[in-house]
Design a protein around this nucleic acid. Structure first.
Length: 1218
RNA sequence: GGGCUUGUAGCUCAGGUGGUUAGAGCGCUACACUGAUAAUGUAGAGGUCCGUGGUUCGAGUCCACGCAGGCCCA
């Protein structure tokens, strides 16, 4: 519960100006008070007996979490969120899209961060007058849910359709996915995230799926949806593809020994490859590429190199054929394949004698089999170049069994790829688009065709069939398994058995196409079902042809405002530049089914709505093609449709049978679609567009703002962008904030097992949402990773919220005493406001301007820090501190309040209410609480007269306009000088042990700087001199001009001005300036020109500082110099003692619990001349300050006298109530 | 391996377009104030601005190459 301590104005606590100048607070008459204000019902109960006398509740030991709970309860009761939206009916819409979370896991602290960002800008835009509908949403499909269900049921994918029906399985998924919805909703409320949880979109709902189908149909009709293949892990023995998840299961990677080949790809001499033939035009040049899967070599159609990798051309000898060859490979890997001992400087002999090559090959050197015995193969470096120079070079097909389709692109070229490494191999990757995922991608990007053959139906298929055997076209190896593990044990036991890879290696050796053949041990993935090696194999997939729209997508992206910009241009931009077609297919169970039905002869139909499906089903039923069972299923669908409970998920959609134009049975393509398409479809599907809500969709498209983690770049950000760009030629969002991660306090990923993860519910209940949100927003810019430290939240709470609450309490305390009510109409005119008021109001308006700019730029960090600095440094530590006396001075009745006091109340109240609004997007509970406390007392009046405070919640208010004419930059500068000078004087006092209570006579400020600035500065300081005087307790602020001769000046070079003029001579100039004589300086100052060591100087080339004022103590800070007169005259000394005395007497009053209105008699022991003099000289002052009716100096003080420590002596004193 | 990003005091962070003495808050130490007081003020200690090289009269800032952390992709 909220704890509080409330004392009414007539209560027992000393309130108001207890001892000041006879100010006696009077209890104010209740009858004149407005109706009681109850911020929130829950709280009001506490105040029932006392609130009648209070306008502003005061809070002690505020519990921020409880505060938030109270506000939340009030919001719920009043439907505040709904009101905030309804209030803006008819205003322009600001559209926000909620990226749907998956509710099958618990929310974490990072969700608080992500959702705070979303909330901030939606709230801000509401304040700015926009209507901001915020529809929540849930992402409900996908693998994680399937896996969770399987885990809970203790099954694997193999069981689906066997021990559990697809229908039951999917039902289980549907139940599981929304399991934590309650917890999510709870967090959403507690953290103060305003989003419509009542009407969220849910991706598994039929209406949602129908919209998704409609989108797919649009793509299909535009020819953007096609069936192709992707390279996936495939198990020929199990006859099935494997998901990456299945591949990541433990034990799938095993070390195997494979036959590997470094193949020689013969370069075609032409313009591009010319530089490789420079040294020997008639030599053959080969590019070396290493493969651990020689069986894929007949499918080679490109070689991939790294653009920035260094390659070399080497002359050497083929170890199998002994033919001299020139080979290309990565420089770093020469040592991997060629023995360093064989290196020779030159290819040819210079001496005319036999070269190393000749020697190696000479017959003398051969053994019986004709091979050079024991000799190391010589080699020589010919040239070196970057990979990019190899791009486009053509080579001869290595194993020309099958020619690619010429229409499909130009094969047998060198291309560039970012996946090439020099860790192993030759730095050149043998590329086969049908048997490698990288290969496929890079081939697609470079227009490299795949080596394919036609099957009996005329369809393109790879050169290895689904059993893992070569097709007939690979004549030499037709029917052979590509992996020896696919043969039976008996076959492999045959002594003549040779694995296919070995046979290929032998063939290549004989043809001078193999540079090296060796066994190599490496980990290779195996099928978890069959334990046999998997193949990377092309499997049917449906694609969206994003590549054809690439340029447009890139172009559209340039119109999006990314925060931070680098995510848009870098991560996202690069992704778009390297776009490949979007593989839509997923072989799963729980997801949106692909709405395409196909016949055996590839007649197909893409269904774009339930109605369309019904129509097709009816047509099928009218034909005589369907079996009994198929007919029954189709009829079941029609019945379900009539009953209004169509479910488009598997297995139901699988069991719908259609009939083609030519009378053939059509079945649904069994794939589901990528769940990312679901979420990318939300702008349309959340409204069931185009079947319903066309107007709503039109109003809310595209989004003005979205925000998600940077990890969504290729996820949601992309799918939104792709669908919008391809189908609507539009962006899906105009502004996007991509947020970083939330790490633990050591910068590591939070982990449950290490105990470093933060439970958001605990955090919120301990610190409240406001401090948590404020900390997250102000500690780090949200796109940087946040190191989340609870100590930081505590600090924010103490330092920012604590200070602000203190400031409010200060206001409330005195306002209650004085019965001050916010004056909305009878304001003290600006001209009559004191300097400090005009200053803080100027600062406030500057703040509003800057905070607005920061929010407009989607930078909540800057906004929060600005507000925080204003509250802590300007409002609390300067304005309130310096104005304290104004609040307790003078009459304590509103009707008699002085102008000055009213001004103080009005100013402080205005600042607090403004801050409440500025901070409300970030700290919504606290800001509302503050607003309520400040303004509820005038609510009725405000409603009646239609003022800004008429709203029940700060979140309903209109953003305050910047009052430009209140901004007084000159005054702000002046006050900054006052602050700086005060700080410097405090420092001087400190260093010279002169406490602030000791008055000093004067502060001297030398004004020597050049030109106009001098005049400005002096004028500005004069303007705030009284503030400085009272702040640092000096009698006067004086200026000393140059001419006084009092000053010692120093000259410094102004590098910024000198740089462009003297450049390289800088050192000399600087030295000359530093060594300048006083006479020279005088000349420079008077004539603005000086010839010095051959340099022509002007006044602006130097900075002149006062270093010292002889006889004074001096502080220097930048251009400012402050001298303090530390002479304590007898009179000052006496005054200081008098002040000390007042202080001690006040303490005694406090110790003895005197009431603020009590008058006292004071008796002092006359034992010290200094004291006597001080008392006599300041008697009136002392008596007034401590409300003493008498002040006597007596000898021999008796009775209840106490001993008091003064600086220089001990004093006996007696204080009695009258 | 590639793309993006971060690296400044013990901790969390500021440091337009290069300008010679790098700042703030917290924490620590000392002192002051004591009618905002579990607040506040002042001072002190605390830095190889990740490293190396370069450009420049001058580099925390610009360039190159590295190192370390993070995300995404392979």
């Amino acid at each position: 519960m909220l704890t509080r301590s409330f004392k009414c104005a007539s209560g027992h606590r000393p309130v108001g100006p207890p001892l000041g100048r006879g100010a006696t607070p009077k209890p104010t008459a209740n009858s004149t008070r407005p109706p009681p204000y109850t911020p929130f019902k829950a709280l009001s109960l506490l105040f029932e007996t006392t609130y009648l006398t209070v306008l502003y509740t005061e809070y002690k030991n505020l519990n921020y979490a409880a505060l938030a709970e109270g506000v939340l309860a009030h919001w719920k009761e009043t439907n505040a969120f709904e009101q905030s939206v309804a209030l803006r009916e008819g205003r322009p819409t600001f559209t926000f899209y909620e990226g749907p979370p998956s509710a099958n896991g618990m929310p974490g602290i990072h969700h608080v961060m992500a959702r705070t960002i979303k909330d901030i800008f939606c709230r801000y835009k509401t304040l700015k007058g926009f209507q901001v509908p915020r529809k929540g949403g849930w992402d409900t499909h996908g693998l994680p849910i399937e896996l969770q269900v399987e885990k809970e049921l203790g099954i694997t994918k193999d069981h689906i359709g066997k021990t559990i029906s697809v229908a039951d399985y999917n039902q289980k998924c549907r139940e599981t996915v929304m399991r934590f919805t309650d917890r999510w909703n709870d967090l959403t409320e507690k953290m103060g995230y305003w989003v419509d949880l009542e009407h969220p979109y849910v991706t598994y709902e039929t209406n949602y799926i129908e919209s998704v189908w409609w989108l797919l149909k649009q793509l299909y009709d535009k020819g953007l949806l096609y069936k192709g293949y992707t390279i996936q892990p495939f198990s020929p023995k199990a006859g099935t593809g494997l998901s990456s998840h299945e591949l990541n299961m433990p034990g799938t990677y095993k070390d195997v020994k494979d036959t590997t080949v470094v193949a020689q790809f013969k370069v075609k001499p032409n313009g591009k490859s010319g530089f490789l033939f420079f040294d020997s035009a008639d030599a053959d040049v080969y590019i070396l590429a290493w493969t651990t899967t020689p069986w894929t070599l007949p499918a080679n159609s490109a070689l991939t190199v790294g653009a920035n990798i260094d390659y070399v051309l080497v002359k050497t000898i083929n170890p199998y054929t002994f033919m001299p060859v020139h080979v290309v490979l990565a420089k770093n890997l020469v040592g991997r394949w060629l023995n360093e001992k064989g290196r020779v400087d030159s290819i040819n002999s210079r001496s005319g004698g036999p070269s190393a090559f000749d020697a190696y090959l000479s017959t003398d050197n051969r053994n019986r089999s004709g091979a050079p015995a024991g000799a190391i193969i010589p080699w020589a470096l010919v040239s070196e170049f970057k990979g990019q120079h190899l791009e486009g070079i053509e080579y001869e097909q290595l194993m020309p069994y099958v020619q690619p389709d010429p229409a499909a692109g130009k094969p047998f070229r060198v291309i560039l790829g970012d996946f090439v490494t020099t860790e192993d191999g030759t730095g050149v990757v043998h590329t086969s688009p049908t048997f490698g995922a990288d290969d496929f991608r890079v081939a697609q990007q470079n227009g490299i065709p795949a080596i394919m053959v036609k099957d009996e139906t005329g369809k393109d298929v790879p050169i290895v069939d689904r059993q893992g055997r070569f097709v007939a076209e690979i004549t030499d190896y037709a029917g052979r398994y590509v992996k020896e593990e696919y043969y039976s044990d008996e076959e492999r036991a045959d002594p003549d058995f040779k694995p296919t890879d070995v046979l290929i290696a032998i063939q290549l050796k004989e043809q001078n196409k193999a540079f090296r053949v060796e066994k190599y041990e490496h980990p290779y993935p195996h099928c978890w079902r069959t334990d046999k090696p998997i193949l990377y194999y092309p499997l049917d997939s449906w694609f969206i042809r994003t590549t054809t729209m690439k340029d447009r997508l890139v172009e559209l992206n340039k119109t999006i405002n990314w925060q931070p910009e680098s995510t848009g241009t870098g991560r996202f931009g690069n992704w778009l530049e390297n776009l490949v077609d979007w593989n839509l297919s997923r072989s799963r169970f729980w997801g949106t089914p692909l709405p395409i039905w196909r016949s055996e002869t590839r007649e197909e139909v893409c269904i774009g709505s339930v109605a369309e499906l019904v129509e097709h089903v009816q047509k099928a039923l009218a034909s005589d093609v369907l079996t009994e069972e198929q007919r029954a299923n189709d009829e079941a669908f029609i019945a379900a449709h009539a009953a209004g409970n169509v479910d488009l998920h598997r297995p139901y959609s699988d069991e719908i049978y259609l009939v083609s134009e030519t009378g053939l049975l059509m079945q649904r393509e069994p794939d589901l679609i990528d769940v990312w398409f679901d979420s990318g479809a939300m702008p349309y599907a959340q409204w069931h567009y185009p079947f319903e809500n066309k107007d709503k969709f039109a109003q809310s498209y595209p989004a003005d703002f979205i925000s998600e983690g940077v990890d969504q770049t290729r996820g949601w950000f992309f799918t939104l962008h792709a669908i919008a760009g391809m189908l609507f030629d539009s962006v899906a969002f105009k502004n996007v904030v991509s947020t970083g991660l939330v790490l633990d306090k050591n910068g590591q990923k939070m982990s449950k097992s290490k105990g470093t993860s933060i439970d958001p519910f605990i955090t919120l209940s301990e610190y409240g949402a406001d401090a948590t949100r404020w900390y997250m927003m102000t500690n780090t810019e949200p796109w940087d990773n946040l190191r989340f430290n609870l100590d930081g939240v505590a600090e924010v709470q103490r330092r920012f919220f604590g200070t602000l609450t203190n400031t409010y309490n200060f206001f409330a305390l005195y306002a209650n005493v004085d019965g001050y009510r916010i004056e909305q109409f009878d304001r003290v005119p600006r001209e009559e406001l004191p300097e400090l008021d005009r200053w803080i109001l100027s600062k406030l308006n500057t703040l509003v301007r800057e905070v607005e700019a920061s929010f407009e730029a989607y930078n909540p960090t800057k906004a929060g820090r600005l507000i925080q600095d204003f509250v802590n440094d300007q409002l609390s530590n300067w304005y309130v501190r310096l104005c304290r006396r104004r609040f307790w001075a003078g009459a304590a009745d509103a009707s008699e309040m002085s102008h000055d006091k009213r001004a103080a109340y009005q100013t402080l109240q205005h600042c607090l209410a403004s801050v409440a609004q500025l901070m409300s997007p970030i700290a919504p509970f606290y800001a509302d609480w503050l607003y309520q406390n400040l303004t509820a007392a005038v609510r009725e009046e405000s409603i009646a007269r239609n003022t800004p405070f008429r709203h029940d919640s700060v979140h309903f208010t209109d953003w305050q306009p910047v009052a430009e004419d209140w901004i007084d930059t000159d005054l702000e500068e002046a006050m900054a000088l006052a602050q700086q000078i005060s700080s410097m004087v405090h420092a001087l006092r400190k260093n010279h042990k002169l406490k602030v209570r000791q008055p000093l006579s004067r502060v001297l400020i030398p004004v020597v700087s050049v030109g106009q600035a001098t005049g400005t500065m002096q004028r500005q300081i004069e303007q705030v001199a009284p503030i400085i005087e009272s702040e640092v307790n000096v009698k006067s602020v004086e200026f000393v001009a140059d001419a006084s001769g009092l000053l010692t000046k120093r000259v410094k070079p102004n590098f910024k001005a000198l740089g462009p003029k003297f450049g390289k001579q800088m050192k000399d100039v600087a030295a000359a300036i530093t060594a300048m004589t006083p006479d020279e300086l005088t000349q420079l100052e008077t004539t603005n020109s000086l010839q010095l060591a051959g340099f022509n100087l002007q006044l602006t080339d130097v900075e002149i500082l006062t270093e010292d004022v002889p006889g004074w103590v001096v502080a220097v800070d930048g251009p400012l110099t402050v001298a303090l007169d530390v002479t304590v005259t007898d009179e000052l000394r006496r005054e200081g003692i008098a002040r000390d005395l007042v202080n001690r007497i006040q303490n005694l009053r406090k110790d003895q619990n005197f009431d603020v209105t009590d008058k006292i008699n004071v008796a002092l022991e006359r034992n010290n001349d200094l004291l006597s003099e001080a008392v006599e000289a300041n008697r009136d002052y002392i008596q007034q300050e401590v409300q003493a009716v008498s002040l006597e100096l007596v000898t021999g003080l008796n009775g209840s006298a106490v001993e008091i420590e003064m600086d220089e002596f001990v004093l006996k004193m007696k204080v009695e109530r009258v």
